[in-house]
Design a protein around this nucleic acid. Sequence first.
RNA 1: GGAGAGAUGGCCGAGAGGCUGAAGGCACCGGUUUGCUAAACCGGCAUACGUGGAAACGCGUAUCGAGGGUUCGAAUCCCUCUCUCUCCGCCA
Length: 424
Amino acid sequence: MHDLRMIREHIELLRDGMRRRGKLDALAPIIDRAQAVDSERRGLIQAIEERKAARNSMSQEVARRKRSGESVDELPSQSRTLGEEISHLEAELATLEAELQRAMLEIPNITLPDVPEGGEECNRQIRSWGTPRDTAGLKPHWDIGVSLGLIDFERGAKISGSGFIVFRGKGARLVRGLMNFMLDLHTAEHGYEEVWVPVVVNRASMTGTSQLPKFEDDMYAIRDDDLFLIPTAEVPVTNLFAGEILSASDLPRAMTAYTPCFRREAGAHGKDTRGLIRVHEFDKVELVRYATPESSADELELLTLQAEKVLQLLGLPYRVVLLAAGDTGFASAKTYDLEVFAPGAGVWLEVSSCSVFTDFQARRANIRYRPAEGGKPRFVHTLNGSGVAFPRVIAAIVEHYQNADGTVDVPDVLRPYLGTDRLD
RNA sequence: GGAGAGAUGGCCGAGAGGCUGAAGGCACCGGUUUGCUAAACCGGCAUACGUGGAAACGCGUAUCGAGGGUUCGAAUCCCUCUCUCUCCGCCA
């Protein structure tokens, strides 16, 4: 969420931000409405506070007179009249505040200056690593995974539905190995604190990281209890310090968590649905950082390199793509996607999305820190990135390391975790 | 699920209708003193919104878990909810 000052003092900046996302036409009416409601709201606040000030001084006068034994005359009834006016005005104010809040929650973050304007077609490849295998004669992971008994799509569909995966035998061991490998890397080499968090969260947490109110349809909900299954560990981990004031020495703070992630993928049916590419429940190790506003842009580079390290150690060729403004997520100010090449299916697969959210999430979740020099608390900047998502990495491993005889070599770095050097 | 107790500033903790934005302590910041570290002493130290100001800062309003109510006036009384603790029941 933006600072209200953005609406009052920098509305051109806000409009330009929406234009760069290609969303100005859709959002201009909302911005204008927010501006109008805000100014109406401020008038009301003044009217209410004047009356409250008058009422407070009357109450004090009552107290004073009672102490000295004087008559309080008409003061109580005057005060009661004021109270009634205040109630009416406050009801009006509540309506306005709700409308303003609704509007503000619908305005996406402004991207950083170095993010290219335009839509998906303006995404820019920043760098790449490794050499993709020649795709000729290679099989897709859904064939290899089934024939080696690593993945059981049919039974996943039977017990839960399409898009729910059962891993078996060495396939299951591979999932567990990836989890341990990634957590070990990020804690031992990259300095992250390992956290284990609930995968069911409340509405406040979902709103804090911006999944709500816009994307409620994309989530699995437990309606009886108003709880939601997380679409990413970003939600519980970023919200860990919601409502708190950290000290400057707490920053930067880096946390990593393994969780399953749940996505309804409503409306995505039929696209990329083959195999492990788009599923309803998947596993992921997530990286979350809190940074100061001064360092957050640099920390995005650091975070991205840490996610890349996973792919390098796994020996999987990948490319880093800077998303254009129109393709950048709602709350994000800048995002790099990491895409690995799956030579069997012949596609690049997004396995990580690394973003800096500036103070957009922190303002919603109210995560602040007190600067070292003292002074007022400031919102932290939040960042996160997958480090990395499992199913697509499994797809890439199986396809990249496949042998002519149908077996798959295990990447060196995973061998200690799997206790084998070959999937067969 | 049943019964009881509780929730006060960054932290601990007083307060039990008006003089309380809130005693006292700790932490933190500035200063004095001091071979160094420490201690002692003095002073400062909440947040948000509105408003005035170039700013320093001033004024107003709100905030004692959240929301409602009683009252001229609520941290304090009443109701609902959330969370924590104790006991009982159930349970991986």
